[in-house]
């Protein structure tokens, strides 16, 4: 699969590669970096905003955004943890993102949990406290209302987002291969 996929060159001056193979754009806005955990081999593209500063009110260290391996955050996508009133006080909750997650460009993600192998399309809006289970597709432009639960192997589309389809049984292999291939092809231009 992906025999004809062309390499995706990037400007070497723009991206920083970490020890674990994460490729993070210098032009991405990362706030509260100490509260963000990247699993490795993930790509944060130019213009992406990660709000690690929106942390829980309790004292001590709390990871705000946790991301697994082979994830991609597209250009100008926004990741911010969900927050709500709890016992008379406003507090943020951590955002957990598993492996092989692709977040399209211009997407706004305030989900509480995103399972592995989830593909969020371009310009999608994921409301607060949304739970996306493993292996799901959110088509481009979908708006998921707050606290929606997206079950495994489902495809969601529309505003408000509705379940429109299910995924074939081979989807896990397909998505893992495509995420790996994307990372391999994302190389600095010579």
């Amino acid at each position: 699969m992906g025999a004809f996929d062309a390499p995706i060159p990037y400007d070497k001056a723009v991206y920083i590669e970490t020890d674990t193979g994460n490729k993070v754009s210098r032009k991405a806005l990362i706030q509260g970096a100490s509260n963000i955990v990247l699993g490795g081999k993930s790509i944060i593209q130019t213009g992406a905003i990660l709000r690690g500063d929106l942390r829980r009110n309790a004292p001590g260290q709390h990871p705000v955004i946790t991301m697994g391996r082979y994830c991609t955050v597209g250009e100008n996508a926004v990741l911010r943890p969900p927050g709500k009133m709890y016992k008379g006080q406003f507090t943020y909750y951590p955002q957990r993102i598993a492996d092989f997650v692709t977040i399209g460009k211009d997407a706004v993600v305030e989900a509480a949990q995103i399972g592995s192998g989830v593909d969020i399309g371009e310009g999608a809006v994921i409301g607060q406290f949304v739970i996306i289970k493993d292996l799901a597709v959110i088509r481009p432009g979908t708006v998921l209302a707050d606290a929606t639960v997206v079950s495994s192997m489902s495809v969601w589309e529309g505003n408000p987002g509705r379940l429109v389809d299910t995924l074939p049984e081979t989807y896990q292999e397909t998505v893992e291969a495509s995420c790996r291939s994307l990372y391999q092809r994302f190389r600095p231009n010579a």
Binding site: G2, A3, F4, K133, D134, L135, E169, T170
Partner: peptide, 21 residues
């Protein structure tokens, strides 16, 4: 879970044909 106990899919048996270039 999302796993399958039995999964006999054609992608494991037939070559993938793609067209490009």
């Amino acid at each position: 879970s999302t796993r399958f106990k039995i999964k006999m899919v054609a992608a494991n048996y037939l070559p993938v044909v793609e067209i490009g270039r």
